[in-house]
Amino acid sequence: MTVSPVARTVRIERAYAATPEHVWRLWTTGAGIESWWSPDGFTAGRL
């Protein structure tokens, strides 16, 4: 983790054994968000 007092930002990085396309789908689809972040029983709102 890098903390920059000048810009007042925090940057956290982590490497995953996945393609950029797979990670993109996890972060940009309801199903991906549910599988990435949610506990059992959680659903992401769908339009």
Rank of each mutant, 00 (worst) to 15 (best):
R8W: 06
I33N: 01
T19M: 03
E21Y: 00
W24L: 08
F42H: 04
S38K: 05
I12T: 09
L26M: 15
I12V: 15
T2P: 00
S35I: 07
A18M: 11
I12Y: 06
G41N: 02
P5C: 11
T9P: 02
H22R: 13
S4F: 12
G41C: 03
H22N: 12
T19I: 11
I12G: 01
S4Y: 08
M1R: 08
P20C: 00
T29E: 03
W24F: 13
W27H: 15
V6N: 05
D40P: 04
P20E: 10
I33Q: 03
A31I: 05
T28E: 11
T28A: 02
F42I: 06
A17N: 09
T43Y: 08
A44P: 01
T43P: 00
G32W: 01
A15H: 12
R46C: 04
G45M: 04
M1L: 13
M1F: 07
T29C: 02
G30L: 02
L26K: 06
V10W: 07
A18H: 05
M1H: 09
G45W: 03
P39R: 12
E13M: 13
G30Q: 09
L47D: 10
W37P: 04
W24T: 12
P20D: 05
I12S: 04
V6S: 11
S35E: 14
A7G: 09
I33K: 00
E21I: 00
L26Q: 09
R11G: 04
R8T: 08
S4W: 07
R14Y: 13
